[in-house]
Design a protein around this nucleic acid. Structure first.
Lengths: 216, 216
DNA sequence: ACCTGAACACCGTTCAAGT
DNA sequence: ACCTGAACACCGTTCAAGT
């Protein structure tokens, strides 16, 4: 979807700059988090500061374009896993990819916390990702690997949970997230499951996710 | 511990300003997150901008003072729960208070992600909190409510996990965190527990938490 | 059409001048 | 000792001038 925008009557240099910018910014955000300045990114890409804002009217929308790309990639990986022989292993693999993605990218958690989540592009990618997660969860549930009251939307939220638990030790213990993903997955299994104290969000509630009250 | 600093030969107006500043900043951070400006906080407290930096040399240290206060409060609540009759209910209650605290305070997650975590005051409060969590977990484990391979430090990290899962829907579904805390607690129980793929962090690894590589 | 850097508003932080 | 606001460096964003 990012590609289509590049193919519309865009001049060759503009298309090149846009791609260069996305790649450079993605690398910078992943390494240093979203606090890297636009000036730094522009310099690293070898283009003018103003050019960044010509392609993305705001820093948040640049971050949104990158985040939605990553969500799309995760959704694609999940879709491929729908054909896997073992439904439980497929769901575990999907979550593994998702958590690893967040751990490797310093900006992922930050972007998910802010208004970037409200961006239409991110929203669409998130909706699609949720559908894929739903399909994977359905298969795993029918296979007896997942409790009856857990749905795909829960899975997507729990990706952030496992990543967050391990985040403070990201540098010292890069694989720690596997511990908490394992523990959370044990909680998702039917064995020993107790009724959950709160239902999963309705569609209407999901639609309200990420909108800040003040709009600041 | 914040109080002791106020009692040392501090002038009356300074002590008053310091307290006013902490309260005002805590409220502002909780409501709007750490992106509220120092100027706004100073204005709301009715003191000069420069005075803020006289009390706290940096915005991060102001945030650290507030965060460590909250960690102390949670540790105190946990200590009180060590006398509770039901060890499982006590641990659940401890985690409930901890997650609720994070959901109510917009700056909590943000501060935990950044260098604020490396602040000595925050570190000390976190160490104490971990000890309390350890004691609560030991009791619950002996009572058969918690699996053998989960320790107090895991509990502290999992507080952030449950909060993070529910964070995007904070406004729309304020109690959603109860769902994910319930699911995580199910994962902590002995029933259906599978070996975790990664050990809990060692003391040395814990000590490295939150230090950024670049020091930026 | 697109690129660019100077210009603007805002924010964290410093500091000289006040009491 | 402590308070204060003007001054500084930096950052996101805008825009007039270039090709």
């Amino acid at each position: 979807m990012t590609d289509t925008a590049e193919r519309r009557g865009m001049r060759a240099d503009a298309a090149r700059n846009r791609r260069l910018l996305l790649d450079t910014a993605a690398a910078a955000f992943a390494e240093h988090g979203m606090e890297v300045s636009i000036a730094q990114i522009a310099a690293r890409a070898g283009i003018g500061k103003g050019t960044v804002f010509r392609h993305f009217p705001t820093k948040q929308r640049l971050a949104a374009a990158i985040l939605s790309d990553q969500l799309d990639r995760l959704a694609a990986a999940g879709t491929a896993l729908l054909d896997a022989a073992d439904p439980e292993a497929a769901l575990v693999e999907f979550m593994t990819i998702g958590v690893e993605l967040q751990i490797r990218d310093r900006s992922f958690c930050q972007a998910a916390t802010t208004d970037v989540r409200a961006d239409p592009e991110v929203r669409a990618a998130g909706d699609h990702l949720t559908e894929v997660a739903e399909a994977l969860t359905d298969r795993a549930r029918r296979h007896g690997a997942v409790r009856a009251d857990v749905v795909g939307y829960d899975i997507v939220l729990l990706l952030g949970a496992a990543a967050q638990a391990a985040a403070p030790l990201r540098e010292a213990v890069p694989d720690l997230w596997r511990r908490y993903l394992g523990l959370i997955f044990d909680g998702m299994r039917p064995e020993g499951a107790r009724p959950l104290p709160h239902p999963t969000p309705t569609d209407a509630q999901r639609a309200a996710a990420g909108r800040s009250p003040t709009g600041r």
